[in-house]
Amino acid sequence: EVIPALESVLERGASVFVLPSDPATVRDEVVAYLRDLGAVTHAWQGMDTADLQAAVHRALGWAPTHTCETGAHLSVAAGEREGGTIRAGLEATAAGIARLQGLRLRYPVFSWDQLPVQEALHHRYLVGVRTWQTFCERTQLSLHGWHVVVVGFGLEGEGIAEAARAFGGVVSVADHDPARRLEAAYAGWRTGSLDSLAHEADLIVTATGRSHVLTTELMSTLRSGCFLLNAGGERDEIDVDALTDRREVIPFVEQCRIGDRQIYLFAGGATADLAAGHGESLNAFDLTQGIMVAGIGLIVSPELDWPPGVHGLPDHVWRDLASRAAQRGVPAGG
């Protein structure tokens, strides 16, 4: 889904280095295609943590002038080095922006995670639909009669809960923030703490953007046969290192043990719709892709004069795209 954006950048004469933010989402055929177009790549399916760190170091050694990231791994590493060549960057995720908070950035980074069109379309609706489409397609199971616990009631969690109910699930919502639990209760959801809901779940899905939301202690209380699924922005929302005897029973579904419990892990604990599916629907991703390309146009502009630090993407960069999409009545960029 990112190929058209990168084709556009390469066709305009840019030099491009491609590395993954989450190795579980890498498509080797896409990497090969981009390499054939002239991009420098350091990505392959099955990379481990050391491989990802090596990719980040190699990318910084390549001396980039601009970055376009999901997760801010490159910017965080750049901030730990003296000097550097980066002049400006883009960041697409809340998790990435959280990593940048408190860093002494030497260049501006523009966040487009909280744009109204991203929050109202991608976060609120599309993630939930694609998550459950992917799960049901890969497992050949439906959610009918299942007790689904959604962890996190931000915009993505809200959409995931609604889509789970539409797919037949009996849904409860857990959130560590009492204000969000109250919001979920006002919306008609059964709510509670994760500790109080987890033991009765047939499937737990995380949508928090935080690491190790599902801890060893919590997973040891789950009923046998429970499925674990990550739909959030962090690849380690599930503490998969606590799971033993992992064995793939069908593609993207592993049977695991924790203590005397047998549970099932979907997509290795990586972001489900990206690791096991095809990501966003193409027509919906058009707008996202258009905003990304427009954002790249902003950061490479010779007239760019913003102070170092994190900034929201300016309205003039994306509003014209949103207006054209609204006129067409569908979320498609131009």
Rank of each mutant, 00 (worst) to 15 (best):
Glu1Ala: 08
Ile3Tyr: 07
Ala5Ile: 06
Ala5Ser: 13
Ser8Trp: 14
Glu11Thr: 05
Arg12Leu: 04
Gly13Asn: 00
Ala14Tyr: 14
Ala14Asp: 15
Val16His: 08
Phe17Val: 10
Val18Thr: 07
Val18His: 06
Leu19Glu: 05
Leu19Met: 14
Leu19Val: 14
Pro20Tyr: 09
Pro20Asp: 07
Ser21Leu: 02
Ser21Met: 04
Asp22Tyr: 11
Thr25Lys: 06
Val26Trp: 03
Val26Lys: 03
Arg27Ile: 00
Asp28His: 00
Glu29Ala: 11
Val31Tyr: 09
Ala32Leu: 14
Tyr33Asp: 12
Val40Gly: 10
Thr41Glu: 12
Thr41Tyr: 11
Trp44His: 15
Gln45Lys: 15
Met47Lys: 11
Met47Leu: 02
Asp48Leu: 02
Asp51Ile: 11
Val56Lys: 04
Ala72Gln: 00
His73Ala: 08
Ala78Lys: 04
Ala78Val: 05
Glu80Asp: 08
Glu82Leu: 10
Gly84Tyr: 04
Ile86Lys: 06
Arg87Trp: 00
Leu90Asn: 12
Gly96Asp: 09
Ile97Asp: 02
Ala98Asp: 15
Gly102Val: 13
Leu115Val: 07
Val117Cys: 14
Leu121Ala: 14
Leu121Phe: 11
Leu121Tyr: 05
Leu126Gln: 10
Val129Phe: 13
Arg130His: 14
Trp132Lys: 11
Trp132Asn: 01
Phe135Arg: 01
Ser142Tyr: 03
Gly145Leu: 05
Val149Lys: 03
Val151Leu: 02
Val151Arg: 00
Gly152Tyr: 03
Gly154Pro: 06
Gly159His: 07
Glu162Thr: 08
Ala166Met: 14
Val173Leu: 06
Asp175Lys: 06
Asp175Ile: 10
Pro178Ser: 08
Arg181Cys: 10
Ala184Gly: 11
Arg190Glu: 13
Asp195Arg: 15
Ser196Gln: 14
Asp202Thr: 00
Leu203Gly: 05
Ile204Tyr: 01
His212Gln: 05
Val213Leu: 07
Thr216Ile: 00
Met219Pro: 09
Gly225Ser: 09
Phe227Glu: 03
Ala231Glu: 00
Ala231Tyr: 00
Gly232Ala: 02
Gly232Trp: 08
Glu234Gln: 15
Arg235Cys: 05
Val240Arg: 11
Thr244Ser: 15
Arg247Asp: 14
Arg247Gln: 13
Glu248Val: 00
Val253Gly: 07
Glu254Leu: 03
Cys256Ala: 10
Ile258Tyr: 02
Arg261Tyr: 04
Ile263Gln: 03
Tyr264Trp: 15
Leu265Thr: 04
Ala267Trp: 06
Gly269Pro: 05
Ala272Met: 04
Thr288His: 08
Gly290Phe: 11
Ile291Ser: 08
Ile291Ala: 02
Ala294Gly: 07
Gly297Ile: 05
Gly297Leu: 06
Ser301Thr: 08
Asp305Ala: 13
His311Lys: 07
His311Arg: 09
Leu313Pro: 06
Leu313Val: 09
Asp320His: 14
Leu321Trp: 12
Ala325Tyr: 08
Ala326Asp: 04
Gln327Ala: 15
Gln327Pro: 00
Arg328Leu: 15
Gly329Met: 03
Gly329Pro: 09
Val330Met: 11
Pro331Cys: 09
Pro331Asp: 03
Gly333Arg: 13
Gly334Trp: 09
